[in-house]
C-alpha cells in the first residue's frame, strides 16, 4: 500500500523544489537572488504541467513565466537598484509573528483539504492538444473562452496606456522638490 510509484516520487521531488525555493525567495536578503529563486519555483510549476501530460501549458509556463517575466523582473531590478543592495534585516518579532501566521494558516488549510472528500470525475480526460485549446479559446459556446480572451485585451490596453503615463518624463516632475 505504501509503495510510492514513480509518478508520485517525481511529484514529491518537484513539490519539495517549489516549497524550498518559495521560502528562499521571500527570505533572501538580496533582491536579485530572490528573483533567481523565483525562477526555480516557476520551473517547478512547469514540471507539474508536464507530469499531468499538459505539455502545452508547461511550455507556456516556461516561455512566459520563467522566460519572460523573470527576465523582466531582473531587468527592472538592474535598472532601478544596485545589485549588491541588501534588504534591511527583519526584526525577530516580526519574523516569528509572520511565521506563526503562515504556519497556522497553512496547517488549517491543509487540514481542511486532506479531510475533504473530493468527488473523482467520471468525465474522460479532455484532449489537450493545441488544436483543441485554440478552438476552445475562440469558441463562444459553453466552456469556450472567447469573451475572457477579448476582455483581457482591455486590461492590457489600459495597463499599457497607464504605464506610459506613469513612466513618461514630464517637465513638471523635476520642478517639485517633493519628488526624489
Amino acid at each position: 500500500m505504501m509503495s510510492i510509484t514513480f509518478h508520485q516520487a517525481v511529484f514529491y521531488f518537484f513539490s519539495a523544489i517549489i516549497v524550498i525555493f518559495s521560502i528562499l525567495t521571500v527570505t533572501s536578503k538580496r533582491i536579485l537572488r530572490a528573483a533567481t529563486f523565483l525562477l526555480f519555483v516557476l520551473l517547478g510549476t512547469a514540471a507539474f504541467y508536464f507530469i499531468l501530460n499538459y505539455a502545452f501549458m508547461g511550455a507556456l509556463q516556461i516561455t512566459l513565466y520563467a522566460g519572460g517575466i523573470v527576465v523582466l523582473i531582473i531587468f527592472s531590478i538592474l535598472l532601478t537598484s544596485h545589485v549588491g543592495e541588501r534588504f534591511e534585516p527583519i526584526g525577530w518579532g516580526k519574523m516569528i509573528a509572520s511565521a506563526l501566521v503562515s504556519l497556522i494558516g497553512a496547517g488549517f488549510t491543509l487540514y481542511v483539504l486532506l479531510n475533504a472528500d473530493f468527488i473523482p470525475t467520471q468525465a474522460p480526460l479532455p484532449d489537450a492538444s493545441v488544436k483543441n485549446i485554440g478552438t476552445a479559446l475562440l469558441s463562444y459556446e459553453r466552456n469556450g473562452f472567447v469573451l475572457p480572451f477579448e476582455v483581457v485585451s482591455l486590461l492590457l490596453l489600459a495597463a499599457i496606456v497607464g504605464a506610459i503615463v506613469i513612466a513618461r518624463k514630464e517637465p513638471h516632475d523635476t520642478e517639485n522638490p517633493n519628488n526624489e
Binding site: 476582455v151 482591455l154 486590461l155 489600459a158 495597463a159 497607464g162 504605464a163 503615463v165 506613469i166 514630464e170 513638471h172 516632475d173 520642478e175 517639485n176 517633493n178 519628488n179 526624489e180
Partner: peptide
C-alpha cells in the same frame, strides 16, 4: 475585478509629482 483594480493603481498615482 482585475480590470477594475489594476488600472486603479495608475489613477491613484496620477499626481506622480507628489510622493
Amino acid at each position: 475585478l482585475e480590470i477594475a483594480s489594476i488600472p486603479m493603481a495608475i489613477l491613484a498615482a496620477y499626481e506622480k509629482f507628489k510622493s
